[in-house]
Each structure stands twice: as C-alpha cells, then as structure tokens.
C-alpha cells in the first residue's frame, strides 16, 4: 500500500467478521490494497483525510467502500449520509454489508445512495462467494472512474 492507493475500505467493528470478510476477499485475491477501519468515526476520518489520516488529503479515494451498518458511535447509515453530502466522497461506490435484512434498513440504505445492499449470507461458502463477487464487480465496474480520478489527481499534484 505504498503510495497510499487503496482499493477497498472495509468499515466493520466486529474484528472476527472483519477477519472473515478479509479472508473471503483473499480467496479472490482482492485483499492487497485493503484498509480496515473499526468504526464509523474512523471511516469518516479516513475518507475526509482528517485526524490520523490527514496525510491522505492528496491521495485518491478508495475504489469501493464495504460498509457495515451496526457500529458504535457513528453507524453505517450516518457514514453513508456524510459521504454522499461531501463532494470529495459522494462518487465512491458504497456496498452496505449487513447481517440485517430488515426492510427499513434496505430502503434507507438505497435512499441514501448506497450502490448495493448485501445481506451477509449465513453460510460461509455463500458468504465468501458473495464477498468475492461484490469485490470483483465494483473493482471492475469502477476501473474507469478510478483511472479518471487518478488522472485528475496527477494534474493537481504533478510529482
């Protein structure tokens, strides 16, 4: 992760679940440029390059955010709301990963602009497959926009 390029930002407070998700991504070789933050506040600091992440101010955005919903302090939906309200982060694709299949959350997640809403399947195999598919889908789909972003960044900060 030298030069600060991050493909996937995983926002997940449960370390076991995070480990499981990372292992699933690993199986699809998607874990190389991944950053894991443990709550909503940290996720927002990372995305807005604040506090401990202040040095990320000129670094490109992650290509996809995998966002858990139930987290202490700042929940997933609040992170999503703040991301979509900020010009810097509003175009980052967001995939909500949640244990919940409650209709309320699905509707709110989509209305806030989530690109996908995935209920983590109970079965490990299905879970691994779902995570892998998602990672691939968003990484490939957003290739273009990320390249564009990188080009923009280079124009602003020619090194």
């Amino acid at each position: 992760m030298e030069n600060g390029i991050v493909d996937i930002l995983l926002v997940e407070d449960n370390p076991s679940e995070a480990k499981l998700t990372i292992m699933s991504l690993q199986e699809h070789n998607l874990d190389k440029k991944l950053v894991h933050v443990e709550d909503g506040a940290e996720a927002l600091d990372f995305l807005f390059a604040r506090g401990p992440f202040a040095d990320r101010i000129h670094k490109p955005n992650p290509r996809v955010v995998l966002l858990d919903l139930n987290m202490p302090k700042i929940g997933g939906l609040e992170v999503l709301r703040q991301m979509k309200a900020n010009d810097r982060t509003k175009n980052i694709p967001v995939v909500i990963l949640s244990s919940s299949n409650q209709d309320k959350d699905v509707i709110e997640g989509y209305s806030l602009g989530a690109n996908s809403y995935v209920v983590k399947p109970m079965e490990y195999d299905a879970f691994t497959k779902a995570i892998g598919d998602l990672g691939c889908y968003w990484m490939l789909l957003n290739e273009g926009s990320v390249l564009l972003m990188m080009a923009k960044e280079r124009m602003v900060n020619p090194d």
Partner: peptide
C-alpha cells in the same frame, strides 16, 4: 437478526 447471526456466521 444482527447480533445472533453475526457470531454464527463467524463460527461457521
């Protein structure tokens, strides 16, 4: 739905 499913998924 949140809190019971998550640990079960991790165990599995």
């Amino acid at each position: 739905s949140h809190d019971l499913r998550a640990p079960l998924r991790v165990i599995q």
